[in-house]
Structure formats: C-alpha cells, structure tokens
Design a protein around this nucleic acid. Structure first.
Lengths: 341, 341
DNA sequence: ACAATCAAGTTAAACGTTTTTATCGTGCGG
DNA sequence: CCGCACGATAAAAACGTTTAACTTGATTGT
C-alpha cells in the first residue's frame, strides 16, 4: 500500500482535502469536532506529513544550514573546535520543530561566503548558523541585506545588531589577566586566534586594558595570532620562552593550543608551575587530564549550541535580532595554584 | 522578478517544458542542437534547478543522513571522535553530486535505531551513513531488509555483507602487539572501546591471537572496555598499574584515552619510557604533542570519511555492497623507542 | 507507393501540499 | 418572510518538475 496522504484521509472521512489540510494545521475555519474526526482518521491510517509537498507549495525548506569551516584534507591538526557537540546541540534544539540541520562543510572563509550567498539567493535553507565571525563580516552583511534569518556563533564588531551567541571573551580575559597579575605575574602571554577573527580583537583589547589596570606594560612580543592548533601553541612557547624576558604565564585560547604549549614546555625543559604556567579556555574539560592539570575557563559547549538552535528558531519566527543575543561567561576552574614561583 | 523555472526557458526558446526538462537531463530524445539552445537559454536567464519540484515528483530526497551519536549534554568528556572531520569528508565527497548531508544527532544506540527506522520507513533520506557498529547490528539489519542504501563506518561480524569503511583494526593490533613483544614487553594492556562494539571484538580477538603468536599469556586483568574518554584511559592506568604485575605497555584505542593514560601516569608518578609506554591509534596526529610524544598508528580521518561519501553515492546508484568495502591500514608513526627499560 | 519505423517534439498528468475563491445552508435583523 | 452575513466546507489552482502517452513529419523497406 502506498503511503497515506491527505487524500487518503479525505476519502476516509468523506471530507475534502482542503478541510483535512486545514484541520491538521489547526485552522480556525474548521470546527473542533471535524478536526477531531480528521485527527482520528490520520492516526488510524498512519498519516505522516510529506514535506516535499509542503516545501514545493510554500517555498520553505525547513532546513537550517550549519556552515562548518573545517580544515582541508592536508591539514590534520586538532583545532579543538568541538563541532560535533556544537552540531548536536543545534540539532537537539530543533528536535521538536519541523526543522532539520543540513551541513555545509567549507574549507575557508571564501567558501563560506560563497555558500551563504548561494543559500540566501537560492533559498536552500530557511536559516543559517555560522561561526568564525570577523570584526566586519561580509557574510553577516549579505544575510542582513537579504533579511535572511541567521545566528552567529561569535560576535561582530562593526555590523548592525544581529542574533549571536558567544563566550564572554572580554570578561574572561579581564578576569584571567587580573587573576594572574594578582598572583605575581608581570609577563603574561596571549595565545590568540587568527587576527581577523572578531574574538581575537575582543580578547586583545580586553588584554591591553586589563594589563593597564594591573599596572603592567603591554609587550607585542607576548601576543601571537594563529590557528589554534597544538602546533601553534607549541611554536608560541618555543618562540616566547627564548625572549630575553620570557613570559611566566600563557593564556591560551583553547585546549588544543594549551596542549601544544605543554609540548613546548617539554621541548624547552620548562616545568609548569615553576618556570611558567598555562591557563586556557576549554570546551571539553580536557585540561584536567593534562599533566599537571591546568586552570581553565570552562564553557560546556552544549550551552551555546543549544542556544544557537533556539535562537535560530525564534529568528525564523520573525523575532527581532536584538532580543537574541547572548554572552556567556565561562566558569573558572582552578586546577593549579598559578602563583609566580 | 521571480526565480526562473523551466517554464521560463520554455517561453524563451519556444519549446515545451517537457523538452526543456529532457534537454537539461541529457535525454537522448532531444537532439544536440536543441539541447544547446536550451542550455544557452538556461544560462542566459540564470536558471537553477528547484529541488523541491524534483523531490516531490521523483520521491527522492537527495539527502544523505549522517547519524551522529554524540554524548548528551551531561557528558562533557572528549571522546576523540573527530566527527567534524568525518562529516566534512563526507560532505566534500558529495560536493559535485546533487546530494547533501543532513544531520541526525542521537544520544545513544537506541535513538540511532529509532532514527534509522524513521528515515527508512518515511524515506527521509536516500542513503544513510552510520558508525559505532556492533557485532550483530539491528540497524544494519533494518536497512538491509528494506534494501535501503547505507554505508557503515566500522564493520559488523554477523550481518550479511554490506558496504563499510573501517580501519584495519586486526592488522593494527597484531602489528602493535608483535612490535611491543619484540621490544621485550611481556605484559601488554589493551584499552579497548565498549565491549558491544564490533571493533572491540575484532581488536580483542587479534590481541589474543597476537599474544599467542608471541608466546605471551593472556591476562583478562590487562584488558578494559569503556567509553574512549580521557577519564577512562586514566582509570585504566590507575587500576592496572596497581596490579601485582603491572603492564609495561598500554595500547590505547584512541588519542583521548591515551591522553588520559598519561594523566594516570602523572598521578602514579610513572615515567613514560621507564616504567611503561603508551601506544595509540590516532586520527588527529595529536599524539605528537604529548609529553613525550608517543608511537601511534595514524589514520588521517579524511581518508575514511571521503570514502564513506564516495561509497554511499555508488551504493545509491545501485552498486553491489560487496564492491564497497574498505579496510584501511593506519600508518605506524614511531615517536619513541618503546623498548622495555 | 504505402505501411511501418523512427526521431524529435508536444500534451497532459502526476507527485502532496496550501490557499484563494466559491458554494451552501443557517441563523439573524428588519 | 426576505435578504444578508456568517460559519463551515468544497472546488480549484498553484508550486516546479518528470515522464508516460501521444503527435507529426521524415525515412525506410518491400
């Protein structure tokens, strides 16, 4: 037997397909007892809405496009971005809605721009979730101009207000610098993400201000920008520890770079807690397994990701972007003393 | 102006929409010069195929469902499964096809079973990619019975032949055990995934046989099964190192558990290379940043994942599953001597 | 030379919905 | 008791595509 459609229900109940459709969509035009009849019949025949019909008729896709910038095949470095958790968080938030997550893997920023252009112009999705935001992000602009619903994971600095979710990087860095300064550190290194990323700027800014507040001077040699891989964390330590006045603390932007920093310590014969300390931002709580465990600002990834899902739903409902903005302050987990030896 | 359709092209060329459709689909019923005319017109008006129409008409979804079993919100442990890379590999393999990846995040095995049931019965996708296979996997059986195209990441042991991609676990373990035995180790521990998983069995089996070949006895106390998190790796070391005759080598099933094993070493005051060594299987090449770097069997995740994508395409084309099976032998990367001190 | 074949189109139906418009009783005010 | 509005349902069109069935004119075989 073929799959039942509203036509099946129409025959079953003696009503027209129009009424059946309205009944199933809770239209006020159909009276309760008729609706009950329809629902009962639908149940009986095992009716399931066929999305293809809906999509063709309404033009809606019921898809939320998740743009995932993953490193290309050459690149086998751990980036520490827990996309898996991010994606499942979004997916779960959409669970009770008719929306599904469709994946758009891109290799770099340019490709993500192209992908978004296509999605917007061809309406390949009803909403977009994108990460890796820049200070002035052309992708955001495209979506805004087309009045296309979207939420970013990460803020922008120069774009009109839009829906976003992000860790509160400024507060986190302020806190981190103040804490380390309070423990006697005077040379604090910042292992930062790629300079063009919005949160790199936010962090650098907060870092400079916090240094000033603590009465410490800013030294550009203690700041590095790059892909947050272990390789980068390692390089940073190798380079900075060779400075005439090496840092005594490293603030790493994620756990992958922190792991690399450890590797640099090992290569240089540095001992954590004696020669210098490492702090990190952590999505996975993996830093507790480092030897020794390090102090981190921990943000369980499922929080922002579920928020992304909920926000995109509300944004697609037409809610104003200003109401859909969240900065989440990660939780400080102190695992080492971190005092200057 | 509304988006151009085949109707637009029909008007533009003076042909019927049927001919236009056939021309665009390379039907032999339309002659080359007509096809050229149509293609030119399509180009001119900026025609893009509307999938909704196709989907409704043909019943095909042009979606490949990727079932992703991600740990729930409570669970914030690194599992070391690089789903991000896995998904992007699949996504890229489908890039030149009309297919897209749709994500189905599930919390556990039961949910994945339910998801697959639904996809198969409601035809919510044209193909399925699923991982975490069991020895006798009911999901595989469901898809086989429905003659639904699928590829598994991981083998099964008791199901009829199907398309799969996997690391060659047996060969890897055989090699690993032989190598360690050759370096003087007589107590080799196996940190294995959950016992019900197919590859846990494969690995255990190969492990026992390799021990026998090497003239070593099998000790169940040196085998542990669990979720491959750092926590588990740590536990294993804590427990096994307290045995009367502790192991001198640990074979970890992934880099997350290897990291945890290191954490266990640190807690027990064990020194890698002196008291015991750790070997691992590694998708990310992250083990090179451990302190010290360890020997791993490295399988760049993009290889199996792109293969998954290519296989599901071919499977959806109707190719026989027997032709779509791949066991990939990871590359040995020796980063430490590993000789028994 | 005429029927049969064939190539290259066209016509029309169909996929499953939603939504606009039309229909048809029924209750109501006047 | 008549016209009218209204409430509930039905009819029909539309979304964009594919494809089975049909048409037409040219080519072929005998």
């Amino acid at each position: 037997m073929p799959r039942p459609t509203i036509k099946t229900i129409a025959q079953e109940t003696g009503l027209s397909i129009a009424t059946v459709s309205k009944a199933l969509n809770d239209s006020p035009q159909v009276r309760p007892q008729t609706r009950a009849l329809v629902v009962a019949a639908a149940e009986r025949v095992g009716y399931q809405l066929n999305m293809h019909g809906v999509q063709l008729r309404t033009g809606r896709t019921y898809q939320v496009a998740a743009i995932m910038t993953a490193p290309g095949p050459r690149q086998n470095e751990w980036e520490g971005v827990e996309y898996a958790q991010l994606l499942s968080g979004i997916s779960w938030a959409l669970e009770d809605s008719p929306y599904r997550v469709s994946l758009h893997a891109v290799r770099d920023f340019e490709e993500s721009l192209a992908a978004i252009r296509q999605i917007v112009s061809l309406r390949k999705a009803d909403g977009i979730i994108v990460s890796g935001t820049r200070a002035d992000d052309p992708r955001v602009r495209i979506m805004q101009e087309a009045d296309f619903p979207f939420v970013t994971y990460g803020t922008t600095l120069e774009n009109a207000p839009h829906a976003f979710v992000d860790a509160d990087n400024a507060q986190m860095i302020r806190h981190s610098v103040a804490r380390l300064a309070g423990r006697g550190h005077r040379r604090i290194a910042l292992v930062n993400p790629m300079a063009e990323l919005s949160y790199a700027i936010t962090r650098l800014d907060a870092y400079r201000k916090a240094l000033e507040t603590a009465g410490l001077s800013f030294d550009p040699a203690l700041v590095a920008h790059g892909h947050l891989t272990p390789a980068f964390g390692r390089e940073c330590v190798l380079a900075m520890s060779a400075l005439p006045a090496p840092p005594t603390a490293y603030i790493c932007a994620n756990e992958a770079s922190a792991l690399g920093a450890f590797s640099g310590f090992h290569a240089r014969g540095l001992v954590h807690g004696r020669d210098a300390v490492i702090n990190a931002t952590d999505d996975l709580n993996v830093s507790q397994y480092f030897a020794p465990p390090i102090t981190t600002y921990f943000l369980p990834i499922h929080e922002p990701s579920e928020l992304l899902g909920r926000y995109i739903l509300r944004r697609m409902e037409g809610e104003a972007p200003e109401a859909l903005q969240a900065l989440i302050m990660p939780e400080l987990i102190e695992r080492s003393d971190d005092r200057l030896a």
